[in-house]
Design a protein around this nucleic acid. Structure first.
Lengths: 194, 194, 194, 194
DNA sequence: GATGAATGAGGCTTCATTCAT
DNA sequence: TATGAATGAAGCCTCATTCAT
């Protein structure tokens, strides 16, 4: 039945969203099934109808969030604009996640050491996929002469690290708007590339 | 009694070191008093002679580590070298922590959301002290014309974020030595400043 | 409605058979409604259409199994053969249950301590009915002089105990066939009676 | 410290005894850590100071009980009496367990299907050790001509089965004393051997 | 100072049971 | 009739904390 399947999927997603929220507030260990369920006005027992156990649930959180973020990067990559522009936009996209979708963002870049090997592997792979879009743009940019760096990977690491850090200090009502931050960061970070 | 006080302090430090290690491996929630004690061939009961409770212990871990790291920055700042050189050395010092003293490092820059407000405040203050040495060097550099940036705080954030990120990807037997990483990072990051 | 009643009864029996199987594998506590239902490609919710609750279902398992086994003994008792022959055949029948219908057999002679008094009573009564056929044959045999024992009940207990125990050690591919076991057991056990 | 070790051992034994009792009343699955602890006026948490988990506790129950029972058989075997006498006494010993130490007895002869392979193996071995003393007496008896049976194992199985069954029907205030039961059973069962 | 032992709260998980559809 | 979904009680287990010795 298409309908019931859809419903199931939707519910799963709701739960995942709730879990993402709690996990980002409290971390993997700190998040409790109780709280995740309470957020949705469910009882914790119900969660086990949808997910095998806590690890499974948290794993699917990672998977889902990474999926979305990666799609966004991909679409930027496929636009017909200069590599410099692409990189700027990617940085902006990433910053927006860090600031405005703090919850989902943390999930991507705070690799908890809580997964068994079998589950950890696919996550790391998906994370690589995500980073890969940055690498590709930088590489292209180097080819076209827009960027002038030798240590590609290092440059990418600096870039991601700098941007990820934002959510450590950013506060909703700070003295800079999201746009300003995006502007300043991309300006300064592009300096690294040139 | 000077002697017994010294002994007490030494013991406390031993415990803190053990705790730092475990916390960085497992996180705040994951670290157990049992394990922290076992590391020192003690029983967990004994820990409560030295620390009021788990939170207190972990708090003092942060305090101690930050103290040390800050002293190191201070000594660099007081050397008679150019601001560019100072910044390079600070970055190098920070990178070394991130790579070779991973355990203590994490403690500085992974602010767990586990502290009550009373305890959190002094930690944040100490962290500010640490960051402050970076700010001061950058500010001096701008004054002398070595650096040319308007957004001081932002630049410092980019710098710290980039460097902090290292320990997310660095592996002991990677293809770059600590020195190479220090070299590349300070080169690329100084580009931001100029 | 004859037809729908028949259907209902058939379905109930199917469920009972499934339950018998699972209970004998896992015990009362270990058997789950989920698994019992899964065996029949149903969902556990459906079971409650046919049975009031788990206890009721398991109870009816016992009832059904005992019914069948008792009928078998009765038919042996009504044959025109010597009491010695009858007893031999009853032992053989019981052994066959123990070996080849292990699942149903366990149900008869592993009295779980899970029933409330109201439910337990009728089960014990039915079990008595079953045992009674043994008693009657032995009694008749004593009257005719075929058997020579004073403690009838004790003798029957020894007999049943010995035979019930078979399924504790019997393995499908052991070095004795069912027939051999039936032969040896009835020979040895008849020694007790004489 | 000899003393503290002794205390520990004693406590463990107390817990085991409590567990044996509960398990025999409710079975492995039915017995709860809560109840086992309550019996000793402890809290369930404390049990985990002495045993790794439920399985470990129950396993040690089996081990302890089997140990004791086996020692008893061994001492009978080493007496200077006829094999017929030995067998009679062994049966009596076993019956006494079945009747008066019901709780420990069940543990020996109700092989729960709850142990992992690693734990199950040593238990089965110990059970074999126990049965072995019966085998040896029977074998010796056959050699000396006291017993006249071909199927040794079968005879032993009949014997054990019959005796184990006692506790299924025996009630504290029945019309036979333990001594009478011992008398009748050994008389009837020795018939099988001759 | 140190520890063995106990505790109790809280977390994960299972499962019989219910009920709207 | 059947089921998908939800519930809540109960069980196992962990662990910070306490305290008598």
């Amino acid at each position: 039945m298409k309908l019931s399947e859809k419903k199931l999927k939707k519910k799963k997603e709701e739960i995942i969203l709730s879990a993402v929220k709690i996990v980002n507030e409290k971390g993997y260990q700190g998040a409790t099934m109780e709280e995740i369920a309470a957020e949705l006005l469910m009882t914790k027992g119900s969660l086990y109808y949808y997910f095998k156990n806590k690890e499974d649930l948290i794993f699917q959180c990672h998977a889902m969030v990474l999926e979305q973020a990666t799609l966004e990067l991909e679409s930027i990559f496929n636009k017909k604009i200069s590599n410099e522009q692409k990189l700027k936009r990617m940085i902006a996209s990433h910053i927006q996640y860090a600031i405005e979708k703090k919850e989902t963002f943390n999930m991507i870049f705070k690799p908890e050491k809580t997964f068994q090997m079998e589950q950890l592997e696919p996550i790391l792979q998906k994370r690589n996929e995500y980073s890969n879009w940055f690498d590709q743009v930088i590489e292209e940019g180097v080819k076209t002469g827009e960027f002038k760096i030798k240590e590609l990977k290092m440059a990418r690491m600096i870039l991601l690290g700098a941007v990820n850090w934002i959510q450590q200090w950013h506060k909703p009502n700070g003295d800079k708007t999201t746009e300003e931050i995006q502007e300043i960061y991309s300006e300064y970070l592009l300096k690294v590339m040139t």
